[in-house]
Design a binder for these strands. Structure first.
Lengths: 333, 333
DNA sequence: TGTTTTTGGTTAAACGTTTTACTTAAAAAT
DNA sequence: ATTTTTAAGTAAAACGTTTAACCAAAAACA
């Protein structure tokens, strides 16, 4: 029942607890080699593990960073958090939490209670002003991955969403398509609004407007649900703001015996792991996910080190990855 | 810079810190309604958030549970942790960590340092005896999802892997297949060994042995890498121990113009989200992922409440989900 | 009236660290 | 031979809570 504390190792090594603390934290330059050895040995024999609650309490910080994503089940975010974890320095701890809009407030509260020193939002923040006030009051810097944010209120890492949408449009245009559908998730993040804007702008620069705009749930099933409308719209191509939905659409189309890309071209967004593996493989806009994750983490660490520097925003480029789901408009239509 | 502590709210409300503590923890039955109101108001005005490091230090526990999975990027584990988080009681905190075999030891150490009271392993444990000794010494109960474990050393939740393999075999057999390949990940967990055993046993009961056994990396790319060998083996069906690999195989087969299920039937394992969405949709063995996650969490919570009860193991059934990737052996081969 | 109970609190110790300020003995410098 | 410096350590306070033990005043009782 008794948990081994620093006292126990001090007693066993016959030194003060100060000595143990200093030595175990590599601040033991004033101690003799012999004492150091005694302490290390006592530590090992007892299997002492420091209590970080006590440590955090005393030093008044935790090196703990909270990461809030919408869901662990979305490959895009799974990639992000994996890359953060893989690149986190030894001495910082990450805590991931998947949080819907509903319980975002309580997630934040719980993280603050746990002592996070900074937060990274992988999802849009409803009630941004109250969240901002709450966090600012407690001097907890945060960073958001969405574009819907005041550039002077926090750090950001962004990708060039507008270009992404634009790339999709010009690709489809260059293949000769003019009857193009746009498929959106029901709830648009600001990132997605930018994608849409880029897409729409580029289309209209070529004097085309979408033949149809359809919304559905942001999921594979959402994509599935939309194929009937898509087929009826007579579109020869579709841009879908998200790979997961796109995969749903692909699936539905195959079941309806609509051939991709012969009958309709599809382009997705994100370049999720699976984009390469579906049949037909998915043309999509790739974001540098791993870099985004790393960069977000590094920026927030920087912020912790220099709280008063002006806010930064990192910018990443996207690129079009052409696979099998898009093709030249066939003339015999 | 100054962080609001319980002292500040005590001062503001003009009461002792004991009063604040008791009232805020709903143990304030001895206090007058007026005092309670004063305290609550002071708390709200100051925006006081309790410091759980201090609390944990004092009460000597954390209600913190560590979950170790191989990777956030594997849909199977993403589902598991999501279901845990969705079902965790208000007062317990979960910390997820993706850890390879290499850094498992240091992950465990770091979690113990952070004060976890229990651990759930979603991955096999190399060096089980040292891990067991380490954890037992510190009275940290743990639970493993793999089958390679001493039933008397910790709680477990298992699925009927043997039956899973067996189901796959009899399905293929009943479709008339006799030339059946088996595709394995390079590193087999004990769960997978059981799958294999069930599969092989059922095959041999029908007097058939696999026409070929192939190993590759446990990933979509691993599956892809294997299709050449698979085609050369002349198998008319294959059982693949994992959906991700199976999806890779499916992909590769399509590129090689081998038709599934006309030319070859494929059955996977896990019934990952994507199984339903690939083309052709994947026949596979479904595990009740969400229930597994919940059950694991509940069991370990039980264990915390009753440390001395005998170890339990929960058992879940699997089922065969027939989709498009398997079909009757065509006679014209 | 004097005694006991009840009501509504407060005091102070403890949890396991880190860190500042001391101490003491030996070595070096004068 | 005294003083100063250095080397090697220790004592004790503090971080923010919780909780056991205590206390005073008012209410109830005899």
């Amino acid at each position: 029942m008794h948990k081994i504390s620093i006292k126990d190792v001090a007693k066993k090594a016959n030194v003060s607890i100060t000595a143990v603390s200093q030595i175990l934290n590599n601040k033991g330059d004033r101690f003799s080699a012999e004492t150091i050895k005694k302490v290390l040995q006592a530590r090992d024999e007892l299997g002492y593990v420091p209590n970080s609650a006590a440590r955090n309490l005393k030093v008044r910080h935790s090196r703990l960073i909270g990461i809030i994503v919408p869901s662990f089940r979305m490959p895009f975010f799974a990639d992000i958090i994996q890359s953060m974890q893989d690149n986190a320095p030894e001495d910082v701890n990450l805590v991931f939490i998947g949080s819907t809009a509903d319980n975002l407030q309580s997630s934040i509260y719980s993280l603050v209670e746990r002592g996070v020193q900074a937060l990274i939002f992988g999802r849009p923040i409803p009630n941004r002003d109250v969240v901002n006030a709450f966090l600012k009051k407690r001097h907890i810097p945060y960073l958001v991955l969405d574009q819907n944010a005041d550039i002077n209120a926090q750090d950001m890492v962004q990708t060039n969403e507008f270009t992404g949408g634009s790339l999709a449009a010009s690709h489809l245009l260059s293949l000769g398509h003019r009857d193009i559908a746009l498929i959106l998730p029901n709830d648009l993040t600001d990132n997605m609004r930018q994608r849409r804007a880029g897409f729409l702008d580029t289309l209209s620069a070529a004097n085309v407007t979408p033949i149809s705009v359809i919304s559905a749930a942001l999921s594979k099933h959402g994509g599935l649900a939309v194929v009937h409308q898509l087929i009826q719209s007579q579109a020869t191509a579709a841009f879908i703001l998200n790979d997961e939905m796109a995969i749903g659409v692909l699936r539905g189309l195959t079941w309806q015996n609509v051939k991709v890309p012969e009958d309709i071209s599809i382009v997705g967004y994100d370049d999720t792991d699976y984009a390469e593996f579906v049949v037909p493989s998915l043309t999509t806009i790739a974001q540098p996910v791993a870099e985004i994750g790393q960069s977000a983490l590094n920026m927030i660490l920087q912020r912790l080190a220099h709280p008063n520097l002006p806010y930064q925003t990192a910018f990443f480029d996207v690129k079009l990855v052409i696979r099998e789901s898009t093709a030249q408009l066939s003339t015999d239509q």
